[in-house]
Design a protein around this nucleic acid. Structure first.
Length: 743
DNA sequence: CCGTCCGAGTTTTTT
DNA sequence: ACTCGGACGG
């Protein structure tokens, strides 16, 4: 086991890296392959700017996750140690957090409420549900999910409801336009913005409001964008508007690692950078310092199957190493054991747990792996940043806090009005909210005087009590200084009755894992962490973020932070544990040992992305991203049978496996090949690797139960012949047949 | 108004 | 497998 690169003195910048760091005078595009030192280029470039006399506060570094921003700041602190607090003054953050910050500062100009709250995914859905009902489309014709996807698409394109309505050509489009308008109305009523708004409103502000634009252009004279391949149109507009005057812009990215097309990322932003900025200079970085040659070769072989691609050669600078392995396992349990065996062996050779990662396509695949690791007593962490804030008790706590920050927040109110039970049920709540909406009375006021809305008895008492509480919290929030945030949070949790409520639940529930009250306590702790972190940096920021003076300011900041945490933010490189995460969350990270599991059709590539060529290429890039996370050891696995939603399904090996070069060692432990055919017509080598063989009992959703008679490749897929008890003999395409294996 | 039971639909990836 | 919403009885 060799020493990790970080401990030795950093190697000098390569020729190409230096060109990228030192280029001046026109926009710069750095096309950086995996492991080519892209973060290093950005940080060195910033350091050089600052040493060359640029104000640190004029540097804006936009990243994809908060984690990446933090990491960048950390590295800059080392590089700029002689420049005092320069690193602290640099503005580094996600597009979303930067948007939130700008909108707070220019709320009036942007036409957003100054005290807006940011909706999390859950509330977004509630808001959408409400919009659907209010616009009379409640018949279940559209799911909130589908509507939100569509609205998100509009927003990515900076289309406002009236524009969408004007362009609507058919009934469906007109309905969507109506739903979009209704949704916006709900948001306005709640003084809320959703994730997309943070980008859209900022982009529009910059585009339409000359004064704000010029101020921000003057402030942020040096702009750097990381992961540029994953920006959408709104983000592109933000960058364009900010940089168009001074043109001191540097974007870094890799088209081969563009994996967010599904949420509007427009790969053309990077592919056509020179069209947008004709004098742009392009610096390719193709030398990989991360992975051994066999790993780079395997990953390159796969990505070369993409047709829509700007060809780029990736060369390993690390030289020879272990061949990557691919193994086909019986099912997800044997796959998990194989992973355990692999990490165990690596540990025996001195690889620390934190140097190992297991990557999968879907979060649902983590469970079996977790269990296997737990049984083997191997320390592991599952990276799912939102998991903590997904818990019921935590969401309730956050809802109460949001109510304290913004009493207009009906979404929060409807969540906790009756938790714990205070006699204020759905019927009364609807009545109160309706009254508030029709009479134009603030919600808090209606809660205080429920009789005016025709609510009396138990429900009225509950409403009055709640209004009292919210009012008292708010008064304290306004009066107290920012440092008292944890006290405020703790008070809210106590007085709301949540603490007692969940204490009771903890007692009654026959102990399963961590307690809900402990999680509530965590919310207080997190508030403390937030405030001390902010206090440390904010005094350095002369304009931009309004300073946190009162506990109310602090509360808003905290809530915003909570709304903007991402999955990958939960990754703790120091944890001393094996890391489990999705392929998406793994972007930008590296590990001596990586296992990519679930290389099956339907999984990687995902079933929803298999039919569209463009989507399929994105899945291939995802595979590429996963493989290139590995420094020394890469294990890829698939399971011949995988249990999906409680049903074991026969799987077909991923098409990407076929694209792996000869240098990859393959083995099949699924035990199924060898006796797959019954010597009857449809069999010939190479044999299909499936979990099925003649004689097995299967169930088909339409044809019922039957016996497999033969399995064979057919074209690019696999044919299975099954004799069904009721439907007779059928030949099915395994990829589509959804066959369930019976025990 | 509150709790519980049952059936339906559902998951890809995330700021 | 798991969550959510509707129905129903207390």
């Amino acid at each position: 086991m060799q020493e990790p690169a970080q401990t030795s003195a950093p190697p000098p910048l390569t020729e190409a890296q230096r060109t990228a760091v030192e280029h001046e005078g026109s926009p710069l595009l750095v096309l950086a392959g995996p492991g080519s030192g892209k973060t290093r280029v950005i940080t060195h470039r910033i350091a050089r700017l600052v040493r060359g006399g640029q104000f640190p506060s004029s540097v804006l570094a936009l990243t994809f996750t908060n984690k990446a921003a933090g990491e960048m700041r950390r590295r800059l602190e080392t590089l700029l140690v002689e420049q005092g607090d320069a690193a602290q003054r640099i503005v580094a953050g996600t597009f979303h957090s930067f948007g939130a910050r700008v909108l707070r500062r220019f709320a009036e100009e942007a036409g957003v409420p100054a005290d807006f709250t940011v909706l999390d995914a859950d509330d977004q859905e509630r808001a959408c549900k409400q919009a659907i009902e209010e616009s009379g489309e409640g018949g279940g014709r559209f799911t909130p999910r589908a509507v939100l996807t569509e609205i998100g698409g509009f927003k990515d394109q900076l289309l406002m409801p009236d524009t969408v309505a004007a362009q609507a050509i058919d009934w469906r489009a007109r309905t969507m336009a109506r739903l979009y308008a209704a949704y916006e109305k709900v948001l306005r009523r709640n003084s809320s913005l959703d994730f997309d708004d943070l980008l859209v409103r900022t982009a529009l502000l910059l585009r339409d409001h000359a004064e704000a634009r010029e101020r921000l252009q003057r402030r942020f004279r040096n702009i750097l964008v990381d992961e540029y391949q994953d920006t959408n149109h709104a983000q592109f507009c933000m960058v364009l508007e900010l940089a168009r005057e001074h043109r001191r812009l540097c974007v870094v990215g890799d088209p081969d690692q563009s994996i967010y097309g599904w949420r509007g990322a427009d790969i053309r932003n990077i592919l056509q950078f020179e069209t947008h900025f004709p004098d742009a200079v392009v610096v390719p970085l193709g030398e990989n310092f991360r992975s051994t040659r066999p790993i780079v070769e395997a990953a390159s072989a796969v990505i070369q199957h993409n047709r829509q691609r700007r060809v780029k050669v990736l060369t390993s600078m690390r030289g020879d190493g272990k061949s990557p392995r691919y193994e086909r396992c019986v099912d997800e349990h044997s796959e998990a054991s194989r992973v355990v065996q692999e990490v165990q062996a690596a540990a025996d050779h001195g690889v620390p747990w934190r140097g190992m990662a297991v990557l999968y396509r879907m979060n649902s695949m983590s469970r079996v792996l977790e269990e296997a690791l737990r049984r083997a007593q191997i320390p592991h962490q599952v990276v799912r940043g939102t998991a903590f804030y997904d818990r019921r008790e935590v969401r309730d706590a956050v809802a109460y806090l949001r109510l304290a920050a913004n009493p207009q927040d009906e979404l929060a109110l409807s969540r906790v009005a009756n938790v714990p039970a205070r006699g204020l049920g759905g019927t009364s709540l609807d009545r109160l909210e309706l009254h508030a909406a029709t009479q134009g009375v603030p919600l808090l006021e209606v809660l205080r005087t429920p009789d005016a809305a025709g609510v009396s008895g138990r429900a009225a008492t509950g409403a009055r009590k709640l209004a009292e509480l919210v009012l008292a919290w708010r008064r304290e929030a306004e009066a107290g200084p920012a440092e008292t945030l944890p006290d405020l949070v703790s008070r809210v949790l106590r007085e709301s009755g949540l603490e007692a409520h969940y204490l009771q639940e903890d007692r009654s529930e026959a102990d399963e894992g961590e307690s809900r009250t402990e999680n509530l306590a965590q919310v207080v702790t997190a508030a403390g962490d937030f405030i001390s972190e902010r206090m440390a940096t904010e005094s350095l920021d002369e304009d931009g973020t309004p300073p946190l003076r009162t506990a109310l300011d602090a509360l808003r900041g905290y809530l915003e932070r909570i709304a903007l945490v991402s999955d990958s933010d939960a990754f703790d490189p120091e944890s001393g544990a094996v890391t489990l995460m999705t392929l998406h969350a793994a972007k930008g990270l590296e590990f001596p040992l990586v296992c990519v599991v679930g290389l099956e059709q339907g999984s990687l590539p995902h079933a929803r992305a298999m039919d569209t060529p463009g989507d399929l290429e994105e899945e291939r890039r995802l595979c590429f991203v996963g493989m290139t996370r590995a420094e020394d050891t890469l294990l890829m696995t698939s399971a011949a049978s995988r249990t999906i939603r409680g049903q074991p399904m026969a799987t077909v090996e991923s098409m990407f496996v076929r694209e792996l070069p000869a240098g990859v060692e393959r083995s099949d432990r699924s035990g199924y090949d060898g006796d797959m055919d019954d010597g009857d017509g449809i069999d010939e080598p190479p044999r299909a690797r499936t979990g099925l063989r003649a004689g097995m009992r299967v169930r088909h959703p339409l044809f019922g139960v039957g016996t497999v008679e033969g399995v064979a490749p057919r074209g690019s897929s696999t044919a299975v012949r099954v004799n069904f008890a009721s439907a007779g003999r059928k030949t099915l395409i395994l990829e589509f047949a959804r066959l369930q294996v019976l025990g």
